[in-house]
Every structure is written in structure tokens, then in C-alpha cells.
Design a protein around this nucleic acid. Structure first.
Length: 323
DNA sequence: ACCTTATTCTATCGGAT
DNA sequence: ATCCGGTAGAATAAGGT
């Protein structure tokens, strides 16, 4: 398999499957002298162009990190993207199980025996030591649970990355692979904004809830995982389409949430609940005819929570507009 | 490992349009 | 008749010791 024959245009993905786009940096003014803020790519710093005040250091370079030396500026990657979901990052060769040649014809008994031997040895080489086998098992478990819970690919990928870090940091000895794998997936799901409850994980996992909880706590403290509460606005598009509300309502809900954010209504509240309440409140203002019950059905947020939130949200929204 | 605290959920009921 | 708003008690998640 040579990389050069791969169609270049489809391979423009990074390791985690995301597009290679730099996030926009907000253009702002220097708080000291109101000068222009410039971003220094080379040093990863954001600093005032006039007085030199450094606002943000150690930025991440989102640009492509490879170049090509022949003519052309098409800096595509070649080959399949590397994945953290396979214990060997998907780099190793696999030998198909079918006893067929490339044209689908049956192959002779002698060849079959040869293939069988090759498979056996390939297996022995690719997962040679205990550590690799553990990794293989854990990643298999992550895949299994993720499918059971319907978690998307980036989430599984992240879980794999976290698990690898846990292995590197030697967090595994003394605790079950299964619990740790479940905890990794739980963490990844939250990081990726597709959270599931701990109970849901316990139901698909082979271990109880408690060990998973402990493993997760251990993980997040030892690895310093920064898991921030999701922004309620992220839930809006999903909920809006499930409920079939119009663009107008969705836009209004977005405004309501932004107003709420200004007044610190977020702290401690569940993002999903806020999003659901915002849609309900917006629907009320635009006469969408949404009932609390229907919101609850589609979003999994109870009517009580919707009630408690949407009043606060509308108050905040009204107050912000009056100013 | 246990306990505390804030939040949300389920079930339920009275009142309003 | 359906929807809204409120309440009580259980469950949950997260943090502290």
C-alpha cells in the first residue's frame, strides 16, 4: 500500500477527525493602552502591538505542521488517519479472514494453511506483551459500550486518548481495566458534549457504578482533566430540530441564553435544562405552541426544571433588553 | 471511604384558559 | 379538557475531609 495513490482531497483531516481550521481569535483592544492586539504565531503569544502587554502565552498553533518539498502547496496528509481507538493506532497490517484471493476465488488448501499461519503470527506480533493486550481489551470495551450508548466517533477517539494517558501515567495498577475504561468513556463523553449519566454507563459496563465513579475521580484528578460544563447553546440546534421549532424561535432562544450568561444564571445549573427552558421561553414569545410536556419528552428534561428555569431566563432577557 | 450540599426528577394536585 | 405552576421526597453529581 503506497500513500501516493490515495486521493488527496479526502484526507484533509487531523488525527481526531476534525477539520484543520484555526478557531477565530477575538480582535480586542489592549486593556492598558487600548492599542491593537496582535497574535504572534511564532511564539504563540497574544500581545498588545503598542505597549507590548502579553495577554495570552503558550497558544496552540493550529496550522499544518508538515510541509512538502516538491512543487505545489497541497499539503494533504496521506494514508488513513491515525486513530487512538486501536491499540496499535491502526497502523498495523491485518490479514483478512476470508479464504479468498483478491478476485473472490477460493484458494487452495495449501495456501489456506499458509494464510492461517500468517494470521497466527501476525496476531502474536501485533499484540505481543501484556500491556498491549490490556490496551486492546480496554479499547474493545470502550468501543462496545460506546456503541451501546450511541456515542459518536470523536467521543470514542477521545476515550482512547484518555485511556492511553492513564496507562502512561501508571494509573492502572490496582484497579480494574473495565472500570477504568468505563471512566475514560464517561470523561470523554462529557468532554465532547455528549454526556450520559453514570447510571447509563454502569448499565452497559461490566462493573458497578461505584468503582467507575472512583476511577473517574482518580482519573480527573491525576490527569488534570478539564471538564467544563457544556455551553447550553450547544444543545439548541439539536433540541430545536427534534422539536421542529422555527428558526425564529431558535434565534430567540439563543439570545435568551446569551442574556442569561451575562447575568450568571449558569452556575450550577444543568446546561441541558437551561437550553430546554430557553426554547420553551422562546416558543412562548413566538407562539410556537410548545407545551412543557413535549419539551420534556424530547429533551429528557423534566417539566419542573423547565418551569423553574424559564421564568428566570425570561426575566434576565427582559432586563437585558430594557437597558 | 464516608458525608454534605445543591440541583434535578418523579409523582401529584389545585387552578386557569 | 388540557396546560400551567407549585410542592414533597427521592435520586444524582460533585466536592470536601
Amino acid at each position: 500500500m503506497t500513500g501516493t495513490s490515495v486521493d488527496a482531497t479526502d484526507q484533509r483531516t487531523t488525527r481526531n477527525g476534525k477539520r484543520n481550521a484555526a478557531p477565530e481569535r477575538e480582535r480586542s483592544e489592549c486593556p492598558e493602552c487600548t492599542g491593537r492586539i496582535a497574535y504572534d504565531e511564532e511564539h504563540g503569544e497574544r500581545a498588545c502591538a503598542d505597549c507590548g502587554l502579553v495577554l495570552d502565552a503558550d497558544g496552540i498553533d493550529y496550522g499544518p505542521e508538515w510541509r512538502r518539498f516538491d512543487d505545489g502547496d497541497d499539503r494533504c496528509r496521506v494514508g488513513a488517519p491515525v486513530t487512538a481507538r486501536k491499540h496499535d493506532k491502526g497502523l498495523s497490517t491485518t490479514i483478512g479472514w476470508q479464504d479468498e484471493d483478491a478476485y473472490g476465488n477460493r484458494i487452495s488448501g495449501r495456501k489456506r494453511r499458509q494464510l492461517q499461519r500468517l494470521r497466527t503470527w501476525n496476531e502474536r506480533f501485533t499484540s505481543k506483551n501484556a500491556r498491549e493486550r490490556n490496551l486492546k481489551q480496554a479499547l474493545g470495551e470502550i468501543e462496545r459500550m460506546a456503541s451501546a450508548l450511541g456515542l459518536p466517533e470523536p467521543c470514542r477517539e477521545t476515550a482512547g486518548v484518555i485511556y492511553r494517558r492513564a496507562v502512561e501515567e501508571e494509573l492502572l495498577p490496582g484497579r480494574s481495566i473495565e472500570a477504568m475504561a468505563t471512566a475514560c468513556l464517561y470523561a470523554a463523553a462529557r468532554q465532547q458534549g455528549t454526556p450520559r449519566t453514570l447510571v447509563a454507563f454502569a448499565s452497559v459496563s461490566r462493573v458497578e457504578k461505584l468503582p467507575v465513579q472512583r476511577a473517574y475521580r482518580y482519573l480527573s484528578s491525576e490527569l488534570g482533566l478539564k471538564i467544563e460544563p457544556a455551553d447550553p447553546i450547544h444543545y439548541l440546534p439539536q433540541y430545536a430540530s427534534e422539536l421542529g421549532v422555527g428558526d425564529e424561535t431558535e434565534r430567540l432562544a439563543r439570545k435568551i441564553l446569551e442574556a442569561a450568561k451575562d447575568r450568571d444564571l449558569h452556575s450550577g445549573r444543568s446546561p441541558a435544562g437551561l437550553a430546554a427552558a430557553a426554547i420553551y421561553g422562546a416558543g412562548r414569545l413566538t407562539d410556537e405552541g410548545l407545551t412543557q410536556e413535549r419539551i420534556g419528552e424530547e429533551t429528557g428534561v423534566s417539566g419542573v426544571t423547565v418551569r423553574n428555569r424559564y421564568r428566570e431566563l425570561l426575566d434576565a432577557y427582559g432586563a437585558t433588553r430594557d437597558r
